[in-house]
């Protein structure tokens, strides 16, 4: 209970920092009288979310939920597939030798360059964006989990082996729980990269979502909605990261070095 209380306090400090940043931004814009289409004030950007503009309708609710949905699906898919892939990869020396170079190759492909190909194959819509999110964020998930599965004190494995336990039991009883702290640090990186992936997907191939709003407003030089979208994206990224950190406290209370 105290842990969770502490946690909320730490989170609040993060929100305070964020609030401080927004105030500074507001001041800079007001004091230097920066023109709105260069840099709108955060207030004006945020107001765009709540008040219908006379000249355009951004359908915020529809677009925010589209992006949020894609992020959640993309994150879930990446996490589940990432862990499954890591289990397969770490199962034997042979599969490690085969898969790791392959992943390094895929991970080093410039995503913006292959996004149009994915669009060509899968067309507009959620599949494309989820796949792009996956390609952008699976690598830290797989590498972290694989490291955790393999970085086990060999002597611990003897505990299972002397009872003639199976390789599967070694995985379930020792390797997987041992990898949880690594999985969580993977999840944290993955949570922010997934958001980036989805937005990139929407840039390239979408008819809705916050990435779509950004691209669209760019054409019309309507800057405030771009910043409004950026603020919402940042909040989503922070929210997902916070959710992961909260889960970490609940799921691995035995792990001392939980960091915020």
């Amino acid at each position: 209970m105290r842990k969770i209380f502490n946690f909320i306090w730490v989170r609040n400090r993060t929100s305070l920092t964020l609030l401080g940043f927004l105030i500074l931004w507001q001041l800079v814009v007001t004091v230097f009288r920066i023109r709105e289409f260069i840099l709108p004030s955060p207030l004006s950007a945020i107001l765009h979310l709540f008040f219908r503009q006379p000249d355009a309708n951004y359908h915020w609710i529809k677009n925010i939920s589209a992006t949020l949905f894609e992020i959640l699906i993309g994150f879930t898919v990446t996490v589940l597939l990432g862990i499954m892939i890591a289990v397969i990869v770490s199962w034997s020396q042979l599969s490690r030798r085969f898969f790791i170079p392959l992943f390094i190759f895929v991970n080093s492909l410039p995503i913006v360059a292959i996004a149009p190909i994915i669009l060509l194959w899968l067309g507009y819509g959620i599949y494309t964006n989820v796949l792009i999110a996956f390609l952008v964020s699976f690598f830290p998930m797989v590498i972290n989990t694989t490291t955790g599965l393999n970085k086990v004190d060999e002597d611990l494995l003897d505990l299972v082996r002397y009872h003639r336990g199976s390789k599967w039991q070694v995985l379930i009883k020792i390797r997987f729980p041992n990898s949880l702290p690594y999985i969580f640090s993977g999840l944290k990186i993955c949570s922010t990269m997934c958001v980036v992936g989805v937005i990139v997907g929407e840039f390239v191939a979408s008819d809705k979502g916050l990435g779509y709003i950004i691209i669209n407003s760019q054409f019309t030089l309507d800057t405030p909605p771009i910043f409004a979208a950026l603020i919402v994206i940042a909040v989503m990224g922070l929210g997902l990261f916070g959710l992961v950190s909260l889960l970490e406290r609940i799921i691995i209370p035995w792990h001392g070095s939980v960091n915020g």
Binding site: L156, V160, G165, Q169, P177
Partner: peptide, 20 residues
């Protein structure tokens, strides 16, 4: 060495062979 599993409470460590 004791070789206890950090993520298991004491009682669950004692029960490990039973599970295996």
């Amino acid at each position: 060495k004791p070789l206890l599993l950090d993520w298991r409470k004491v009682i669950d460590n004692v029960l490990l062979p039973i599970e295996i």
